[in-house]
Write a protein that binds this DNA or RNA. Sequence first.
RNA 1: CGGGGCGUAGCGUAGUCCGGUAUCGCGCCACGUUUGGGACGUGGAGGCCGUCAGUUCGAAUCUGGCCGCCCCGACCA
Length: 492
Amino acid sequence: MSKVITPREKDYSKWYNDLVVEADLADHSAVRGCMVIKPHGYGIWEKMQQALDKMFKDTGHVNAYFPLFIPKSLFEAEEKNAEGFAKECAVVTHYRLKADPNNKGKLIVDPEAKLEEELIVRPTSEAIIWNTYKGWIESYRDLPLLINQWANVVRWEMRTRLFLRTAEFLWQEGHTAHATKQEAIEETEKMLNVYADFVENFMAVPVVKGIKTANERFAGADETYCIEALMQDGKALQCGTSHFLGQNFAKAFDVKFTNKEGKLDHVWATSWGVSTRLMGALIMSHSDNQGLVIPPKLAPTQVVIIPIYKGEEGLKQITEVVNSIKVKLQQRNVSVKYDDRDSQRPGWKFAEYELKGIPLRIAIGERDLASGTVELARRDTLTKEVVKIEGLELHIETLLQQIQSDLYKKALERTVGSTHHVSTYEEFKKVLDEKSGFVYAHWDGTPETEEKIKEETKATIRCIPLNNKQENGVCIYSGKPSTQKVLFARAY
RNA sequence: CGGGGCGUAGCGUAGUCCGGUAUCGCGCCACGUUUGGGACGUGGAGGCCGUCAGUUCGAAUCUGGCCGCCCCGACCA
């Protein structure tokens, strides 16, 4: 009763904010633009980390950790990268505070503790990492270097939103070095596929894989690959990027190696990352007015069991049965929580776990004991069924898989239904305003046209989809010839 | 940075025009009755009204400054 979230159809943005807060995922903090990720939200992030980390390891990567601070001189070494991030950097200028002589109990920055060189709080780690790699790479035998780091980064965003855009966020950033251009490109594409695989199979969110236009490219990259997903409100969200960095950073940081022929060459690089923004994608893809919906593969708790009883003795009897169900589920690697708190009533618990998105709920009471059954409720469909306790663990195992695939299917249908093809600018604007979603349209390939369309419609080219169908047409804006449609959308 | 809003108990709020130490709901604590969809009763605790200064016998309320947060844009993952 106390926790009410704004209905999706009334105000999507407010619905999202309410949901994040009420489902106990995260909260605004005392620091502008920074959030506190609460245990339930962090639990989901940990599941994401575990799955991704395994995929990185399985593709030959290892984890390491680099400093939070980057000396300004290193930061500015790769010019485009520095320029791209310059206007959103937090900068450390001093290393000490002291008591304020004019204001008892207050502190001031000690002017005598000014750093000789400012330190940049990393907005991304290419600079510090490539400066380090310089000392690690001498020969082709040192390559490829396949490293990932789990870290926090800071980007001083003007406007922030929980998970989608915060001043500080958690992410992983892979930074690899290769002997050949071909190998680096293969790595870039491989990691894009890892991301797409993860987002689709764990998060149950369908994505479009593609390449960014020059305008949208990562600062310092030769090519940026990305995955784009469509949220329930028809806006697109970039879910991950994988960059082919060419030799830009190798040249900026003078990272050379001797190849098999004994010749010196700069190494080829990639970097790739996904962030806590994925939490936003997860929330906006599946959740409803009742609250969060978590795909089973990422749910910290997959099944919650709620006893319905009269008196202590009644609870004891139910607990006995529940314990045996619990063990059987755990043996099948189903994470299960038994909520036998006497301080809340069943109805309250039902609502609470729905709000938090736990995929399955078992309710078990006196009449179930008599009939050897339980009530099983699905979070995604909000449907209930009465099932036999015997063989319950098998049923649940199957059902969890079913929910996982149903969620994906539903999201896919929604995405396909919101994907449009247009051939004129009028049609383009009309579809954006009336239907929103992904819009495929011909584009003349120039940054100017892209910019104009963005100014006039707020839609951006999300990507040039990989394996795009080649077809002759004319640009919806300039009328100039085009060989393929690109993917437009209004985006987060 | 532009536009809008807000700061009163853990949360959400009334009171502000018209100055007299603060309203209501949820939550919290105790006891009892309850428990198959957010229980009920009785009793109780909790506030330097964002902050600093001014006006006044007296300020949540009037005046001025400052700080902070949220929302909508521009910027971005």
